[in-house]
Design a protein around this nucleic acid. Structure first.
Length: 270
DNA sequence: ATGGCCCGTAGAACGGGA
């Protein structure tokens, strides 16, 4: 596919951009995605590699903090005339954790989310996760993103259905799979967005995350928790959605695989 | 057997991830 045929977007939880930067560079060079959303950069803004990315042809917004969280959106300089910040946090909640970034690329709106993990369903972190998701849902509704060319990409930390889980019985009502979390994911779809992967592949079982322990990747004991949600105007032009499982095989791999979508290029310049 | 691995901050273990 030549670059002019469509628009590609990718999401990847890098689990430390410092450790994963060489892998990211290789992927950018080989895949040439137009937009890339990153989660868990685990660095402050002053350490974010803006210059190195620019040399690779990408401009970027990043909001980070020491040690934990941190999200970024990268966009190819030669594919968009403008890149503007919409929000670098959910404006309807006070939150020191850097988990959200929304930008506008010409007329295309893109949001990058790192949904809290939740730890266990009886923990304060789980309650924080559910509240965070409620804030995200309210925000997306307020912004009327469902009526626009809009993509929400990220690590949702939710496996939407049992077919997204290697062992549904083991994970039954556990964090990432609980009914309360899945209800929030369903509410996101009810706003008018679609799970790009699941719409294109209704019966395919494939995961985006595998535990580092117990040879989970080699045994393909994983979960599908990284997602691309698209507004209806983009869904109409959706050509493909791919989980880049190969990246999980690398030396010093992230525990998450990148997920990308390919859409016929919308009219961004009007 | 209830942890195994990986990361950042440490400058030894520990919190966090999922």
């Amino acid at each position: 596919m030549s670059p002019d045929d469509g628009l590609s977007l990718c999401t990847w939880n890098v689990n430390s951009l410092k450790v994963r930067f060489e892998q990211l560079k290789s992927l950018l060079v080989s895949q040439c995605w137009d937009v890339v959303c990153l989660q868990e950069t685990k660095m402050t803004d002053d350490r974010f590699p803006y210059e190195a990315l620019r040399e690779l042809g990408y401009q970027a917004f990043h909001c980070g903090q020491p040690t934990y969280n941190g999200v970024a959106v990268l966009a190819r300089l030669d594919r968009f005339e403008t890149m503007a910040l919409i929000h670098d946090h959910l404006p309807n909640r006070e939150d020191p954790q850097q988990r959200f970034l929304a930008v506008r690329l010409d007329t295309l709106a893109v949001a990058c989310a790192y949904v809290p993990n939740g730890q266990t369903v009886d923990s304060d972190k789980y309650r924080y996760k559910l509240q965070w998701l409620d804030n995200l849902i309210a925000y997306l509704k307020e912004q009327r993103f469902s009526e626009q060319d809009f993509a929400l990409l990220g690590d949702f930390n939710i496996a939407p259905q049992d077919c997204d889980v290697h062992d549904p019985a083991l994970w039954h009502e556990q964090v990432l799979c609980s009914s309360e979390e899945r209800r929030r994911f369903a509410k996101l779809l009810e706003l008018g967005f679609s799970d790009a992967y699941r719409v294109l592949k209704p019966a395919t079982v494939q995961y985006t995350w595998w535990d580092y322990r117990q040879l989970a990747f080699q045994k393909n004991r994983g979960l599908r928790i990284d997602h691309v949600l698209l507004s209806q105007s983009l869904m109409q032009k959706l050509n493909a959605c791919e989980i880049h499982r190969q990246a999980r095989k690398a030396e010093k791999a992230s525990d998450h695989a990148p997920v990308s979508v390919y859409i016929a290029r919308p009219k961004l310049h009007q």
